[in-house]
Design a binder for these strands. Structure first.
Length: 752
DNA sequence: GATGTTTCACAGTA
DNA sequence: CTACTGTGAAACAT
């Protein structure tokens, strides 16, 4: 958390956005044709917007509503902004321009390509960037006119080109030409993230048959009752997270459904299609440099995830590129590459990447059957070298918890400084590019490499107070670490992985009769039935959706410990670290990456009936479910996207849990989890060893993919004085409320 | 059981 | 519309 918040400012420093204005006029609607009239979205519904003007289709001019962007009423490139910029101006698209609210390219033709795409949801805002002239001098490489490239190489390296002032600096690009960018550090374009189009945007969803309604146009719909405008919380980061959350929730649900039918599992493909079909994407316009809402270190488990948020717009190919105009010339340049990691020749230098070109391989097998040619992605990389373009790099890492899986890690911007041609083993020529990481960025893949080292040699991690504060109680050691101050550790407590009830609960949980393991297709399994007919977890151990209560298999079940429906009772599977935060005491983080929906840990301690604090002050280590976790309810998949009827849970049907857990005297890692108003973890009530539904286990799950070493936080809940009989803030200021330091833009200011 | 290799249907873009 | 681009997961092999 803290690291995240740190990282944003430091990143944007180099490419400061001078003036980003929130879009205020997006109108969220839910189509009544879907029969959603009774549908009432949760307060934190992730997608409540639909664009007021539908999708952009060639031949169908899209008018921006007159109120769409009163800041920039008619022109794409707002006069005031661009003309006061003596340095340069740039426009989002390489050859598209917007005038009078209509998307056109330079020829006045409507365009729908990546190069000149005017997405309907986005009114690109222009921002003038950095005034740092030195920056420009360093980064700008003049357009070279002698672009003929000879092979076989060696080709020229960046160093051959003397850094000179780019022409565009002295001669601002004509505003309307929609010229491309030279370097993100020079300038930058901002675009309101398109996101948050209404998921049910089309009133034309065809039931559960999501088969290829090819990118259909989304129609406007009206339902004023359901309009909501959290315009103040508009935020690119939030949008990206919402897209990814929606995708993965869909994916888990599809997986769950397919497992029942035991059909081929391509859940990510299907979920991706649904997202695309409903235009649930962020950052649809290609851009050079960082992408709003995506931070260095962010994780992705599928290529399609990166596509949906605009990090790398190729579903398969490794090199994403676009055509950019440089003054009078036009060149393809690379914007992002995915390094599948096949060429891990230098582990040492995490800042350098040798990347191979594409092409030359045969049709049906991977073997090289031809020389690679200087075209497509290869050409784009070559041009990027000469233009000094920043390229986003996504590197892969092994999934520690799931070997065989690989994880994509956004590692920030790189520049190519060298290219050459090499003879591959096959005897054919292959292009090679040397990419060097732009300095000054937060750690991305470097964090992974560090952790790898710590695993091999725990002593190499300095400042460790205790290698395992659980003393072997947890499945994995829990490191205690402080590199902030002199604190030698938290106050004394007894480490326990169990929940201790004050009096034993006699009410048993009924058990199932399944042999060895409960199967998703076994409708007779009583545990399945208790969970509403589905196993709550996917085969790889992810919670599919948040429920008021999850029933795991228990002692009276016939199935064995290997049953999938015993996920949380088996304890933690992550390598935790309790660490000293800068300003919020101790915190919790993990060495392992955590996937959205993954089990994190249980809130253990003593179940208590009384909420009283100790005489000596307060008990900070209390877990009390104050209401249903808002973050959890908005986490679930959107049934309408799969053609399922919405199943709103009547909020009055959910009984508040009576349980209060104190971890003051005994507890586990979860007692160190801090509060955040934008948490990455939520809690879920789980039953497994008894049947008293008022006193379940409190289990934490990941809201989204969490990179290693990111602080884990959950929402302690609203203070809710209005609902609490015994808790009223005392007038002398000694109340329980604490000032919140989570740093989230959505921060409520206090927590309890 | 763990790891490596092959196979195959496939999605989005140029 | 087609060619291009490897992917991701299962099946198979070691």
């Amino acid at each position: 958390m803290e690291e995240n918040t740190k990282c944003a400012p430091s990143l944007s420093k180099e490419m400061e956005v001078v003036d980003v204005k929130p879009l205020r006029t997006l109108t969220p609607m839910f189509p009544s044709s879907l029969g959603l009239d009774s549908f009432s979205p949760p307060a934190s519904w992730p997608f409540v917007f639909i664009t007021p003007h539908g999708s952009f289709t060639p031949g169908n001019e899209v008018k921006f509503p007159s109120n769409f962007c009163s800041l920039y009423p008619t022109t794409f490139c707002p006069k005031g902004v661009s003309e006061t910029s003596t340095k340069s101006s740039l426009v989002e698209k390489s050859s598209g321009t917007v005038h009078d609210g209509v998307c056109k390219n330079a020829n006045g033709h409507l365009h729908d390509t990546a190069v000149a795409h005017c997405p309907p949801q986005t009114m690109p805002l222009i921002t003038v960037l950095s005034d740092n002239e030195e920056d420009m001098l360093v980064h700008s490489v003049p357009p070279t006119t002698d672009m003929k490239i000879e092979r076989p190489a060696p080709m020229r390296s960046c160093n051959d080109v003397p850094p000179t002032i780019d022409m565009n600096i002295e001669q601002p690009v004509p505003l309307r030409s929609c010229t491309g960018v030279l370097s993100t550090s020079d300038l930058k374009i901002e675009e309101p993230v398109p996101l948050r189009s209404c998921p049910m945007g089309g009133g034309e969803i065809e039931g559960s048959d999501v088969k290829k309604p090819k990118r259909k146009r989304l129609k406007k719909a009206h339902d004023p009752e359901l309009m909501m405008l959290p315009s103040s919380s508009y935020d690119a980061r939030e949008s990206v997270e919402a897209i990814l959350m929606t995708f993965d929730a869909l994916r888990r649900r599809i997986l769950q459904l397919e497992e029942v039918k035991d059909v081929t599992r391509r859940s990510f493909t299907k979920a991706g299609s649904v997202m695309m079909d409903h235009d649930l994407r962020a950052n649809k316009v290609k851009r050079i440099g960082h992408v709003p809402g995506i931070e260095v270190g962010d994780l992705f488990f599928f290529r399609i995830e990166m596509l949906l948020v605009g990090l790398q717009a190729q579903s398969v190919s490794g090199i994403d590129y676009m055509t950019v105009r440089f003054g009078d010339e036009e060149d393809p340049v690379a914007v992002a590459v995915v390094s599948a990691g096949g060429y891990e020749n230098d582990d040492e230098d995490v800042d350098v990447l040798i990347y191979s070109g594409q092409g030359g391989s045969g049709k049906n097998d991977k073997k090289q059957t031809d020389d690679q040619k200087l075209e497509r992605g290869n050409l784009a990389l070559e041009k990027s070298l000469h233009r000094g373009i920043d390229i986003r790099v996504i590197r892969t890492a092994k999934d520690t918890g799931n070997p065989g899986n690989k994880i994509y890690v956004y590692d920030g911007l790189y520049k190519i400084d060298k290219s050459w041609v090499e003879k591959a083993k096959s005897g054919f020529n292959v292009f090679k590019y040397r990419l060097v990481r732009v300095p000054g960025q937060p750690d991305g893949i470097a964090t992974w490499k560090k952790i790898e080292k710590w695993r091999k040699d725990p002593l190499s991690r300095g400042k460790v107070i205790l290698p395992d504060m659980s003393s072997g109680d947890e499945n994995l050691p829990v490191c205690l670490f402080n590199d902030v101050d002199d604190e030698k550790g938290p106050n004394h407590f007894v480490y326990t992985t169990k929940l201790h009830y004050s009096s034993p609960i006699a009410k048993p949980l009924p058990g199932c009769m399944c042999h060895s393991a409960c199967l998703p297709s076994d409708a007779n399994c009583s545990c399945l039935q208790q969970n509403g007919g589905d196993l709550p977890y996917t085969s790889n151990g992810l919670l599919v959706s948040h429920k008021p209560l999850v029933y795991e298999c228990g002692p009276s079940c016939q199935c064995t410990l290997s049953c999938r429906n015993r996920l949380t009772q088996k304890g933690v599977t992550l390598r935790f670290e309790v660490f000293r935060t800068k300003d919020r005491g101790w915190g919790l983080r993990s060495w392992d990456p955590i996937r959205a929906g993954a089990f994190i840990c249980e809130y253990t301690g003593e179940v208590t009936d009384n909420f009283r604090e100790d005489e000596d002050g307060e008990n900070e280590y209390i877990f009390q479910p104050r209401s249903t976790d808002d973050n959890a309810s908005s986490w679930n998949y959107i049934p309408e996207l799969l053609g399922e009827p919405s199943h709103p849970e009547p909020s009055d049907a959910i009984k508040p849990l009576q349980i209060i857990i104190s971890a003051k005297n005994m507890g586990n890692v979860s007692r160190f989890m801090n509060h955040s108003c934008s948490p990455n973890v939520f809690w879920q009530a789980v039953q497994h060893d008894h049947g008293d539904e008022g006193y379940p286990h409190i289990m934490f799950f990941a809201i989204r993919h969490i990179p290693p070493m990111t602080e884990l936080t959950y929402d302690y809940g609203p203070c809710g004085y209005e609902n609490s009989k015994e808790e009223v803030p005392s007038s002398d200021g000694s109340g329980r409320t604490k000032k919140c330091l989570c740093g989230s833009p959505k921060c409520r200011g206090v927590f309890c």
